[in-house]
Amino acid sequence: MKERLEQLKQEALNKVENAESVQNLKDVRVEYLGKKGPITEVLRGMGKLSKEERPVIGQLANDVRESIAEAIETKQSRLEDAAMEKQLEEESIDVTLPGRPVQIGGPHLLTSIVEEIEDLFIGMGFEIKEGPEVETDYYNFEALNLPKGHPARDMQDSFYITEELLMRTHTSPVQARTMGARNGGEPVKMICPGKVYRRDTDDATHSHQFTQIEGLLVDKNVRMSDLKGVLNAFAKQMFGAEREIRLRPSFFPFTEPSVEMDISCKVCGGEGCSVCKGTGWIEILGGGMVHPNVLEMAGYDPKEYSGFAFGMGPERIAMLKYGVDDIRHFYTNDIRFLEQYHKA
């Protein structure tokens, strides 16, 4: 009996080994492990065996069954894997075909620059203030030490709507409004970005509408060295730590002393080239200590309070930083321009 079982085992294992499909394996299972199979047959004849032999043969028969079952299982999973492999091979694709495009938009370059500057100054504790684009003559000029008939008004030829209303020529009126709202008692630390308008014929370097960002800090004991420190911090973050800044005297009716700030030329590193017209420096913004008349008109005592203000043009910064060669690009909205500056 023992021999018979061993023989059956060998037979079955051979058939498993040679099986070529899952169906072959099923047949093997039915043939050898089924109720009518030879092993069951062997077990049925156990009655003829002695008491001692019975458990030995029983055990052996079970072992044989298990061995066959296990072999079937192993073989089956091998066959299944092979089948899947084959199927996956058939599912193969050309990975170089283009993917389904995702429609991606993005911010306008000026917005990116304005927000970058905003965030930089927010980091230094400034708040963002906004104001109307149609301004009164008072806030646009008079409150900024530019009384009617002042020759410096010519520097900012304006679009008037009525004698008292005009398109603001700078964002400075937001400063005057903010200071005025504080009743001369509290410090002001603000940035005001926005659109401004001047009577200029649109060409490569002029635009009747453009963007400005101005900053203002009014407090007790504000020094000109503070202006220098803040602008230095700004310039290094905005343009790179390796850039130098230089302040030189200038004139604005709303500041005294007034400054113009240059940064060292990126192209030549200060040696002088065509970009910086041979000077090694590029003019980037204007500013100064708030004129006492401006403080006074806003209700601050210029003996007690002092402050600084500065202003810059994001278009100019964009033109310098990215080499944009025509200011009209910012307002034409050519898709080929817009798409160039969609950074995350």
Partner: peptide, 15 residues
């Protein structure tokens, strides 16, 4: 002129 930063009371900047 030296480089300094404003010494006054600081405020939290923000939007």
């Amino acid at each position: 002129l030296p480089y300094t930063l404003p010494a006054g009371a600081s405020q939290a900047g923000g939007l």
